Amino acid sequence: MTSRTLQLGFLTFVPNDGGPEGAGQSLHDGIRLFELAEELGYHSGWVRVRHFEPFLASPMTFLAAVSQRTERIRLGTGVIPARYEDPIRLAEDASTVDLLSGGRVELGLSAGIGQLAPILDPVFGVSERPFSAEAQHRIERLRAALAGETIAHSGTGFMSVPADTNLTLSPRSPGLADRVWYGPGSVASARRTGEQGLDLHVSTLNTEETGDPFDVRQAEQIRAYREAFAHSPFGERRSGRVAVGRIVIPVLNEADAEAHNGFITAYNARMHPDGRPHDRTLPMRFSPLHTGTPEQIIESLRADAALPEIDSLIITLPAPGGAEAHQRILRVIAEDIAPHLGWTPHR
């Protein structure tokens, strides 16, 4: 698989399935998923961030709760749409959770989903900058705050704010500035991520269509990132980290099939077998599913051209299926699949 020590993580939407117990139960189910993953030796757990959808919308609040129920597992956001975040407030929240967790936060960011801009822009009050430029502007402010740079000057001060003082982030968790990730979808954005000294978290979607297979193009993105990072000022003191998301669904019995066949059918129906969407106006390509028996999944992942380039394999859980089905996916992967890919549990 890889000459590096492979780390294993998972990503969840923390879905609210509309059941009788509602959203509160879904949050508790999400916390239990992190607890189980830690017991199984997963290195990291990540949460999707969605506004006005039946999924998690407040990642730092959720991860603060997870931090008090776990000890080792890394706590990641995969990813926060930076276009819709106040960078200083996010820096305050992320630093607070990092301090609560003992330095376990992995802060993943992205520009956001452009197709949602007509809905979200009026709600969150973005500026007149173009879509990606606004996100980049906010990410720069966030990183400056995390690094301890001056945010504002206190002027005459007031109450416990001292006069004539350069104000910096408070509370600040010093190590968090080196644990900021970006989720690109193209070679150009991956290269920019490396130049900026951010870690790389690529997902199950490429936002460019070049005619190449999904995994081949993503491997090119990773190589472009690593080259850019190595030649950046940041490359003098550390190596950039790469995490890759893959949808892995073991189907070993009728219960597994009942839980996941609906999702598998719907996912595949959106695209051609090579991952190109049926809507030819969309310049993107989706990752194939890795599903079947453990042996079939191992063979499928070993054939993935991007995986030899990575540090962390992130298991992207399907949104539907239910808490028990998601727990089973994590368990089967940890016990029957990941050890054959070079992974050893994190204890």
Rank of each mutant, 00 (worst) to 15 (best):
F52L: 12
E53W: 11
P54N: 10
F55T: 09
F55S: 06
L56A: 04
L56T: 09
P59Y: 04
M60L: 14
T61N: 08
T61Q: 10
F62P: 00
F62A: 03
L63Q: 02
A64H: 05
A65F: 04
V66S: 00
S67G: 05
Q68V: 00
R69D: 00
T70N: 00
T70H: 02
R72K: 07
L75K: 00
G78S: 12
V79W: 03
V79C: 10
I80G: 01
P81G: 07
P81H: 07
P81F: 08
A82D: 00
A82G: 04
A82Y: 03
R83S: 10
R83C: 09
R83Q: 08
Y84T: 09
Y84E: 02
Y84H: 09
E85Y: 14
E85R: 14
E85F: 13
D86S: 09
D86M: 01
P87D: 03
I88S: 03
R89E: 04
R89N: 07
D93A: 13
A94I: 03
T96I: 08
T96R: 00
V97M: 07
V97H: 05
D98A: 08
D98E: 07
L99M: 06
L100R: 02
S101I: 01
S101M: 02
S101E: 03
S101R: 01
G103Y: 06
G103W: 04
L109C: 08
L109T: 06
L109E: 05
L109R: 09
S110C: 15
A111L: 14
I113C: 12
I113V: 15
I113Q: 15
I113M: 15
G114V: 14
Q115Y: 15
P118V: 08
P118L: 11
P118F: 12
I119C: 08
L120M: 13
L120C: 10
L120T: 11
P122H: 12
V123H: 14
V123Q: 13
G125C: 10
V126F: 04
S127K: 11
S127T: 15
E128G: 13
R129C: 09
R129P: 09
P130L: 02
S132A: 13
S132Q: 14
S132L: 13
S132F: 15
A133D: 15
A135Q: 08
Q136D: 14
H137W: 13
H137D: 11
R138P: 01
R138Y: 03
R138G: 07
I139M: 12
I139V: 14
E140F: 07
